[in-house]
Design a protein around this nucleic acid. Structure first.
Length: 283
DNA sequence: TTCTGCCCTTGGCA
DNA sequence: ATGCCAAGGGCAG
């Protein structure tokens, strides 16, 4: 499938900015799983080359995942409050937030606690290989992400064996709540940012940071502003130098007022930019 | 109410 | 090699 892009997109920065953890790169092509099917994507200028293991995969499904409906120029006008952000939005122009599956996003970011991006991918791939169904596209094969039913029928020991460590009981409990209907993730789409956040934080293993990740990466709450170590470094270095660092709670309040309704986008550019400052890409 | 310090698993890295 | 770090959160005080 060839998709003629009418909006700015930088596929590389989008898929390599730590929002989603199942994309694998070989040459200029990315392999991942969207909507239960294996997808290969490659960008050539304003053209997106897409190959899928399913003929049912439509252009709309891909564009929806890439949030092509977000008007980036409009968003840049909102978040370009200063030179720092302007530098990042200019350098990584076309970096988009993704619209991921809420369940997969929730489990993935519970797994992100006190670990690094490589190990998040490891945990997610271990779970997919163990629970998922095999997908094939050419010589490439991947596995679907475990369903809440898969997880709820599993147990802590199995999840620990897959490398989740102390996160195992959190993921298990979460799977059970989604499976029983105690937690309805799709309903959170209809709720306000603050109501949805409160409900997510009732889950064990989900605090303000992980709740904000799920809200901004999968539940269309673009005002959510996840503060992790990198974003905190960026804020402290660039906005609050030479003073005792404000608490995360105060930084969150500040960010929501300063960046406004698209704070989530500013967060992603600050995160990506600050992280690459310490560990420049090797390729 | 809000903040602090400590603990939790383990792969990757220097 | 062995200690530190890593897209945090729960809990006690």
């Amino acid at each position: 499938m060839l998709i003629d892009l009418k909006e700015p997109l930088n596929l590389k920065e989008t898929l390599e900015s730590g929002q989603a953890h199942r994309w694998r790169k070989f040459n200029d092509k990315y392999s991942g799983v969207i909507g239960g099917f294996l997808v290969h994507m490659q960008q050539q200028g304003q053209t997106l080359l897409v190959d899928s293991s399913s003929s049912l995969h439509s252009e709309d499904l891909i564009l929806n995942y890439l949030r092509i409906d977000d008007d980036l120029e409009h968003i840049y006008r909102h978040i370009n409050k200063d030179e720092r952000v302007r530098t990042m939005t200019s350098k990584y122009r076309g970096l988009r937030l993704l619209r991921q599956d809420p369940w997969e996003c929730l489990v993935t970011f519970i797994c992100s606690s006190t670990t690094n991006m490589k190990r998040i991918s490891l945990m997610v791939e271990n779970m997919s290989t163990y629970f998922g169904s095999k997908l094939t596209l050419g010589s490439d094969s991947r596995y679907t992400f475990p369903t809440s039913e898969d997880i709820s029928n599993s147990n802590e020991k199995t999840l620990r064996k897959l490398g989740l460590g102390f996160r195992a009981p959190y993921v298990l409990s979460c799977g059970i709540k989604v499976q029983t209907g105690e937690l309805n993730l799709n309903q959170l789409l209809e709720e306000t940012y603050s109501n949805a956040k409160q409900q997510l934080m009732l889950l064990r293993g989900v605090g303000p940071k992980i709740a904000d990740c799920v809200l901004v990466f999968s539940l269309d709450k673009l005002e959510a502003f996840p503060i992790d170590v990198w974003v905190k470094r960026a804020l402290v270095d660039w906005y609050f130098p030479q003073q005792t660092p404000p608490s995360n709670q105060n930084l969150l309040k500040w960010a929501n007022e300063y960046f406004g309704q698209y704070a989530g986008y500013s967060q992603q550019y600050l995160f990506h930019g600050r992280r690459l400052l310490d560990s420049p890409p090797t390729d």
